[in-house]
Design a binder for these strands. Sequence first.
DNA 1: AAGATTTTCACCACATTTGGGGATTGCTTT
DNA 2: AAAGCAATCCCCAAATGTGGTGAAAATCTT
Lengths: 208, 208
Amino acid sequence: MKIAIFEDNLQYRESLELLIVTTPGMELCGSFDSTERLKQRIEALRPDVVLMDINIPGVDGIEAVRIIKEQFPQVQVCMQTVFEDEDKIFASLCNGASGYILKSSPPEKVIQAIREVADGGSFFSSSVARKVLKSFQDSPAPGVFIQLSDREKEVLRMLVDGLSYKLIADKACISYETVHSHIKNIYEKLHVKSKGEAVAKAIRQKLI
Amino acid sequence: MKIAIFEDNLQYRESLELLIVTTPGMELCGSFDSTERLKQRIEALRPDVVLMDINIPGVDGIEAVRIIKEQFPQVQVCMQTVFEDEDKIFASLCNGASGYILKSSPPEKVIQAIREVADGGSFFSSSVARKVLKSFQDSPAPGVFIQLSDREKEVLRMLVDGLSYKLIADKACISYETVHSHIKNIYEKLHVKSKGEAVAKAIRQKLI
DNA sequence: AAGATTTTCACCACATTTGGGGATTGCTTT
DNA sequence: AAAGCAATCCCCAAATGTGGTGAAAATCTT
């Protein structure tokens, strides 16, 4: 299993290098202090797993993940950082990182994270997992309470897609007035009084 | 650390019981095959961590988590299941579960999961983490590309909240025409032509 | 078969949004 | 100093959405 390291802190990078080379089954195929010539390096080295510092010189780690996953989707990326910055965590994950560990994690966690991401799984430090979790819990559970009929859901979906009453009418092969009528009922059930609120509620409560 | 088990499969429950009682620092305070009298039981036992089977007789595990977290938010719940059903995973997590492990997980993972959730962290089996991750990656990264000014973001936020131009004008202490103007610019930048689309895009791309 | 709900459609009046023109001020960036 | 942008304001006309009041047919429930 080939590992590449992108980490600008010399001391930490060296300890990672040592960790990798002393772990059976793992091979260090590259170690860098910036994201310069990122694509060429990945291209040449073909690592299985990349350990990427989030605050690295050059294009930052978040952008680097995007680039790597875009060009080499089979390469698994595990982010590393000292901070627990929520926005950066989410941005990295959305960009395709498979793991996220804090630099304070003990070496065996790092090895575990590498193994799991290489294996197609994911690994989060538990405090990172907690943040990810929280973002779920902040959003209400998929709406089971609000009971929309099939037609109403269909109309709502189109409303969310930004279609006008007229276009909805055409697509659903019903008259403008029927659309009007459905939407009046939807507003009633959702306790809203405008398109904006309806769309917001539909998306946030995952009604569609 | 007091652990309670809710699991209807006798064999698996017994192996969990054995695992808990033989682990130093953990105490088994209750073990049940259904969620009957759930609240009374939690009330009486005051466990630190609950291991909850997702397909348990009585109210199901997903509902049980909700009830537990509602009444006893300090109790940490770790879900257990044989299935990797995405909807159930998300529903459980939204309802307040702090961990999610598959029954195929080895005993040491179970112990690790209990320790981490008790500690305020979270634990996912790596395949579960992968699913959670995927739900992030399906949504685009928080909009870094679309550049809205502060005022525009403010207006957009209010638009999402369902306010009319007039109310936005009042709240922001600017004229109706200025709101109109900002919104024209927002539409331009978002490449949309209606409130509905703007709201949908704002939420989906986490612009607000 | 009776009753409830969903789906369908209509009309009217009013409110709101949208797109098209402008314009001025102040602040940055070049 | 000029260009560019954000923020503020104005007018107009057309398109679109909202609320009220019906009502008929189809479908599902009991």
